[in-house]
Structure formats: structure tokens, C-alpha cells
Write a protein that binds this DNA or RNA. Structure first.
Lengths: 114, 114
DNA sequence: TCATACTATTGACAACAGTCAATGTATTCA
DNA sequence: TGAATACATTGACTGTTGTCAATAGTATGA
């Protein structure tokens, strides 16, 4: 989960989500948060995320076998994690390389730890 | 989200869930985590949780109106949050009183912040 | 005991999500 | 240019989920 390269993180990725224990959530904010947690609510995606987080960078092609899912399914899941801002991908040559966005994980952790 | 009363928390609630960035998750662990995140993946439940977390204790009857959902739907959602270990309920008289389980929220936060 | 009030359960339905085979797109290399 | 490779998209199918009306359960108070 270390991060040698400096990558720019979209502001919206970090400027998000007030903690849960301080006043009622707006419907809008609740919807945004629900999208993030929804991305984390599938076992395959959680294992995928943990695989990516354990390396510095992981190729899509390296996920198929350990997860035991078809290529389209892998593609589907990476997309959902990416749309939630939890991972980010870069295409280099034929390969798609994924890495986690630690800032985003911290945002989510902060939601819950007050 | 403060907690005047001492409540005993089931061990399994706290002894759970290794961080995401350290080695691949087992299928079993991924399933457990997915259940928790699944409970957090609905806007109504997130607003519900934030309402409960903002008070010390909240009656089921006090959730219907702010969430704009029917009584059976409220009951459905409290059950899912409770099964995920995120809230705990106590029946007193005719009323069901809910409070958050801060230890559980911290567990989830720890999954992501390592 | 009867009526009232709060919650849980059941059943039904529409919307959504996970999965894969088939196909399309883009990149590399001969 | 053509073949091979990695990934994305589409379409179809199945299973799950959010929702509520209707009903059942349980506690209170007259």
C-alpha cells in the first residue's frame, strides 16, 4: 500500500463525507457514501482490493486467476471500485495497471471513526 | 456517539477483520466484511445510523418520520444494521431503543486505514 | 379482559447486481 | 497488413434487495 509515484487525486475524492456521528446525513451525502460502501460490499471486490493494496501495482490480468472469475467479471469489478474512487487505473501498452487510492480509504475510515 | 452505560460487546464483533492492505483476504473473511459494508451500502441505513449515532439512544418510532419510510421498512433496516453488529437494540416497554456500537465502527475503520 | 400502541413478520413486486459467453476495441509484434 | 493479446462492452440470466400493505406478536393501561 506504499506509494512511490506522486499521483494527483481529484478533490472530490478527498473533500467528501462528513463523519457519521455528527448530525443527520443529508440525502445527497448519504447517497455518495452508499456508493462507496456498495463498492466494498462484494467479497470478490474486497479480495480484489486487498490484492491490489498488497502490491504496489497490479495488472488486471493478474486478478483473474486468484479470484477465479472470468475476464469480463474482473473488468466489471475494477470499474466499480474505480468509480467509487477506491482504485485508479493506468493503461500501459496492452495492460491495465491498478493501484489503490490510500487517501480515499482514509476518507472512508474517517467517516466511521468519527 | 458518547456512551454512558457500559455494554458488553460480543467478542466476534471486535475480533474480526484483518486490514485490507496486508496480504490477500480469505474468502471467508471477505464474506464477513462484505456483510458489514453491505449494511452500510444503503442511503436510508446510513442516515439511520447517523441519526442513532448523533443521539445517545434512539427509538424505532423516532426514525420513521425523518427517513420517510414505512414502519416495516424501518424494522427491516434496523435488523440489517444490527446483524452487521453496527447497532444494538434493547426493548423497553413497547419501545425498541437503538444505539451504535462504536467498537464495531472502529473495527471497520481499521480495516481501511491500514 | 379489552382496546391501544409499538414492533416484527410475511408476501409480493419492481429494481438492481453478479456472472459469463459472445463480441468489439486497441495495442503489440512479426 | 495480419495475427495475437489484453481489456471493455453488450446482452441475457439468475439471485438479491428495498419497499410497502397486510397481518401477527407483544406490552401497556383502563
Amino acid at each position: 500500500m506504499s506509494h512511490p509515484k506522486t499521483i494527483t487525486v481529484d478533490e472530490a475524492v478527498v473533500n467528501c463525507c462528513s463523519p457519521i456521528g455528527v448530525g443527520a446525513l443529508s440525502e445527497l451525502e448519504a447517497g455518495d457514501m452508499a456508493q462507496i460502501f456498495g463498492a466494498l460490499s462484494d467479497p470478490a471486490r474486497l479480495r480484489m482490493l486487498s490484492l491490489i493494496a498488497s502490491e504496489d501495482e497490479v495488472c488486471s490480468c493478474a486478478l483473474e486467476e486468484p479470484l477465479g472469475k472470468s475476464q469480463p467479471t474482473i473488468s466489471h469489478h475494477t470499474r466499480i471500485l474505480a468509480e467509487a474512487g477506491l482504485i485508479t487505473g493506468e493503461k500501459r501498452g496492452r495492460w491495465m495497471w491498478w493501484r489503490v487510492v490510500p487517501e480515499r480509504l482514509k476518507v472512508v475510515a474517517r467517516i466511521l471513526s468519527e
